[in-house]
């Protein structure tokens, strides 16, 4: 019976719980402090190196760009489920143990708390789609994940922030706000077309990696929101 956090090389074997193998330092994950890494930061180089490996792993036997983005999304999804609870427990007042129950609070939480934790700054803009009430747009002018990525010509449609989109999707699904999916799109391409028309080319240069995360909630989430807003009161 393999157990949580047990290091396979651990030598310690306790008689009271046969089969449980302790790590060599006798500390299971339950003995570690959850806030130990609260203010710890990972070096950008280490992240970039790992992320490149993740992308090339996802790229194996992949059919097209959509499938590649889907795999990146799936890599991020479980992270979102975990970060949701971890960051909620680290909120300013841990005893209050508050969780978001409305779309607006959740989205704000993603744009502020989650973004700060992941990238050290809040997201750049947050909008609700004017045409589709189920859609929210979260903008990041310079997503950290795309910083060291230059796309080959034949893969221009790819946006590696699909990984971050997966994290956001995990957070929303986990909190009980089911999504149709969260996708990452580069805004640069659109900007260049509009920019050419308006003659405002330098604007596009400013944020070449600008990415929009399209969060599309399921219809039932919106319906629930409406019922809750009316409520008994």
């Amino acid at each position: 019976m393999a157990t949580g956090g047990a290091d396979p090389t651990g030598s310690g074997q306790q008689a009271s719980t046969p089969g449980l193998r302790y790590p060599s330092n006798k500390k299971t994950i339950y003995d570690r402090n959850l806030n130990r890494s609260k203010n710890a930061e990972l070096s950008r180089a280490a992240f970039a190196y790992l992320f490149v490996e993740m992308i090339s792993y996802a790229q194996r036997n992949v059919r097209d760009i959509a499938a590649l983005e889907k795999r990146l999304n799936e890599q991020g999804y479980p992270l979102g489920l975990r970060l949701l609870d971890l960051l909620l427990s680290r909120s300013s007042n841990p005893l209050a143990s508050i969780r978001p129950t409305r779309i607006h609070t959740l989205i704000q939480w993603v744009a502020q708390t989650l973004w700060r934790h992941l990238f050290g700054r809040p997201a750049d803009a947050l909008e609700r789609s004017a045409t589709d009430a189920t859609q929210y747009m979260l903008y990041d002018n310079d997503p950290m994940v795309s910083t060291y990525i230059s796309l080959p010509r034949e893969m221009r449609g790819l946006n590696c922030a699909a990984f971050v989109a997966g994290i956001v999707e995990g957070v929303c699904d986990g909190a009980g706000f089911a999504t149709e999916g969260v996708t990452a799109h580069s805004v640069g391409d659109q900007g260049s077309q509009e920019g050419d028309a308006a003659g405002a080319a330098p604007k596009k240069e400013m944020w070449p990696d600008k990415t929009v995360f399209l969060i599309k909630f399921k219809q039932e989430v919106l319906e629930r929101e409406e019922i809750l807003a009316k409520g008994a009161g």
Partner: peptide, 15 residues
């Protein structure tokens, strides 16, 4: 009860 009352500010306690 998990979604809190209609007057809720958008978040509810876990307990």
């Amino acid at each position: 009860v998990q979604w809190g009352p209609s007057t809720s500010a958008g978040s509810a306690p876990m307990y």
